[in-house]
Design a binder for these strands. Sequence first.
DNA 1: GGACGATAGTTAATCGCTTAACTATCGCCA
DNA 2: TGGCGATAGTTAAGCGATTAACTATCGTCC
Lengths: 358, 358
Amino acid sequence: MPTLQDVSRRAGVSTATVSKVLSNTPYFTEETRRKVMEAVRELGYVPNLAARALAAGKTHIIAVVFPYVYEPIFSDPLTLRILGGIESVITQRGYNMLLSTPRLSPSGPDEHYRQLVLSGYLDGLIAIDNVPEASVIEDARAKNLPTVVIGYDVRDGDYWVRSDDFSGGEQIMTHILGLGHRQIGLITVPENMNMALEHRIEGLRAVAQAHGLDFDSLPRANGDFSTESGAACAADLLTRHPEISALICLNDRMAMGAIQQARLMGRRVPQDLSVTGYDDIPAASSFAPPLTTIDQRAPESGQVAARMLFDILEGATPEPTVLPVHFVLRETTAPPTPDFRPSMPTNRSESREEEPPA
Amino acid sequence: MPTLQDVSRRAGVSTATVSKVLSNTPYFTEETRRKVMEAVRELGYVPNLAARALAAGKTHIIAVVFPYVYEPIFSDPLTLRILGGIESVITQRGYNMLLSTPRLSPSGPDEHYRQLVLSGYLDGLIAIDNVPEASVIEDARAKNLPTVVIGYDVRDGDYWVRSDDFSGGEQIMTHILGLGHRQIGLITVPENMNMALEHRIEGLRAVAQAHGLDFDSLPRANGDFSTESGAACAADLLTRHPEISALICLNDRMAMGAIQQARLMGRRVPQDLSVTGYDDIPAASSFAPPLTTIDQRAPESGQVAARMLFDILEGATPEPTVLPVHFVLRETTAPPTPDFRPSMPTNRSESREEEPPA
DNA sequence: GGACGATAGTTAATCGCTTAACTATCGCCA
DNA sequence: TGGCGATAGTTAAGCGATTAACTATCGTCC
């Protein structure tokens, strides 16, 4: 591979001049540029990025960090769409994207990841961080590496972008309540697992209580994001509380599992049971029936995060961003039918569910 | 950030010795190692990867290349699972994964990608290459960069791994024929778009012809991998050829679209119409009804590719690999019912479809 | 005409690490 | 005892760029 020096010799100038021409630093003539460019072409010169990184202290590599927590990112359509959004911006700016999926333990991310962050190999970092414990950006913060977090685990001074989960929860509950449902079941995930989901729950709660509903006494079961767990939760909930006329699920996959399970138990959706999801994954619209859900605009959040990062790299100090969510009305919700409306007006007498089904 | 020199001073040895200890190159005492390691710990030293890359000529970065062709990879669950497989091996070996998605044009991949490949930033490359034109590995080949291709666009001497698409096609057709179907519709993609799919078609053809069926005269429509296009193709096919009792789709998403469309047209699946997919994406098993399909073991192919790459890096010359596929019998296929069996035994009189629906 | 600022290009130090070549020491054996 | 090979560690030369500091040239303005 030809080096800068080869080019400089061939063009009959110094390496400094070649470097200037290539990086468009002032003070060279058109004639010089021509000679240099021609030498570059003739030799097929391509700059050595490692050398450039060492000398200039810039690697043009942005790490995108998806911690390996509850499940592999590679099966979660949502994080993937975020990734797509990030990729589009990074590529467009001529940067490269290093995908890192550190394993998390209570003592923090794995050693290999920590070395990467501290190694000077990275110009910036974008991390998904919704998990309360074990922050993935501590080292980056300590090293002053430009970092944008997508999610909630931030502290003062951090740059972040997040989806308006609270509003998403509000919109769902408003819709369900507006339809006339009062016997509502919740399919959630264990507490302290994901802060985004907890904000959705807070949104649900706010609206429920504004309507005089005792949110904490609503039947509730915890899944683990998967379709299967959604089915299991639905089985549990519908068995113990046959009066339920609407099921609010905190993500689409659990909603889809719940619908299948409900059908197995003889409930038609939406006639006998309304179900809502969250995320609007690709499968949601082609599901039968198409799922009423919340569109988080995941690709957009990736793009916004990437743009914020480049702002920081250029010396600006971008504002943290909360992205609006969009309610997607499809066909899994309907007003409750009298058959499934029990005689008592609320479910105050019901016991509360906390544990997930086996 | 402390450097190697800082460590060497603190430990009271030369930088060469520190380097040796850290890379475990022979000839130092246990005592020396202790001193060095202690200095490393005290200073919080982390090697600078750019400097290491420049000096040693190894970056510990593997590029994973998913060309942007017919659609963004970020919505294709299949390539994503391959990515997951690759990631697991790369991470485990302590390498980093650079995700590159070059834009392809008839003149080749974009310039930024070419620079990356030639820049010396990469220790190896894994590429998905099923698109006939515009190879993504030409530069890598020219530069002698260790490369493994997942797919078909290879030439002699290349390392590759691919799924046994031909056998997959055979198994699908054998199953459908064994069920008794003879009025078979095909939902495919345009020719020269994806070589893997063409091999599946060859597998289908081989078995069909062995059974005396004129494969080329089977009704056929071309989609573009998407659910929507599957629905459109199904609408087209079932309208023109109502006698069709089985629909073979070359991927799951098109199959799912086809099933929804068939249902809209009053066909029950599988009673009135059998449908098969290909890929076994996550949604396939939770679809209603669960989809009969082919499992390609995508994560495995990613793992195999990554392992092959490390073999090459270690000086070995691994054998190209064809991975077996697995037929997944679920609930979208059944024997044809007499109602939908037309009087003529074959469809020799039918015209052939080539164009996709608008 | 001389001084000065802008322009064009060069020299050489530097980034932080690896490694070939070299020196020094030690044990062992003929 | 001398010599040799193995062991332990050092010196210093790169790797291939960037860039600060410097020199040289030229036009302009008083």
